[in-house]
């Protein structure tokens, strides 16, 4: 959660720097986000799922997140650039996960990040596999070590986080009067 908290903070900072307002978020219908919580719930279920069902659950979770991205792209035109960037990051991760049956983790990157090498199949929400010399799309795997915070991320992760930063700032800058709740309040 560390990275997303930093991305959210950066997005809010960028939004304020561009004279945006956090209250624009209060105008978004909460139902819009429901599918994201469903995708998150699927990831939590992974902990209790039999090993054979884990990959299907990971894919299901990715498809739900993709459905949210597609749906919100059609509803939040003001934040289209941020959504597109998030969707690109989502797609890069989905691509490499589909090709490998999980997100491959580079052993060298894990060591560089200052982490012990363990059985990656058994950790971090059970969506990782060990990367080998023949792993397809290796450049999209978890190969980027971030030693200060002891994490290893993928290119898709970085693009997704940048998309979140942009999305937050774009929603903050969006014309609140055009969003459903503000419009209803102004008519009262």
């Amino acid at each position: 959660m560390l990275f997303v908290v930093l991305a959210l903070a950066a997005g809010v900072g960028l939004g304020y720097a561009q004279r945006g307002r956090l209250r624009s978020f209060a105008s978004l219908p909460l139902s819009l986000f429901l599918v994201l919580w469903l995708a998150f719930a699927l990831q939590l279920v992974l902990v209790y799922a039999p090993v054979g069902a884990r990959f299907a659950l990971v894919l299901g979770s990715y498809l739900l997140a993709g459905a949210w991205l597609w749906w919100s792209a059609s509803r939040l035109r003001e934040a289209l650039l941020g959504i597109s960037l998030m969707a690109f990051g989502w797609f890069l991760n989905l691509l490499v996960i589909s090709a490998n049956g999980g997100m491959p983790v580079s052993r060298a990157a894990v060591i560089r990040a200052g982490l012990p090498w363990t059985d990656v199949r058994e950790g971090s929400l059970f969506k990782h596999v060990a990367a080998g010399p023949d792993t397809p799309l290796r450049f999209l795997c978890d190969v980027i070590a971030v030693p200060p915070v002891h994490r290893v991320v993928s290119l898709g992760d970085i693009v997704l986080l940048l998309g979140i930063v942009l999305f937050v700032s774009q929603v903050m800058r969006s014309d609140a009067t055009r969003l459903p709740m503000q419009a209803a309040a102004s008519q009262r």
Binding site: V4, F25, A26, F33, A113, G123, V152, L161
Partner: peptide, 30 residues
Amino acid sequence: MLKVQAVRIALALASLGALWAAAGAPWKCT
């Protein structure tokens, strides 16, 4: 009203955390 707005903002931002959990795949020791 302000409290409701604050909760809605927090929920919207937390939902992006849910997106990260669902679509991101960083490795950390757990």
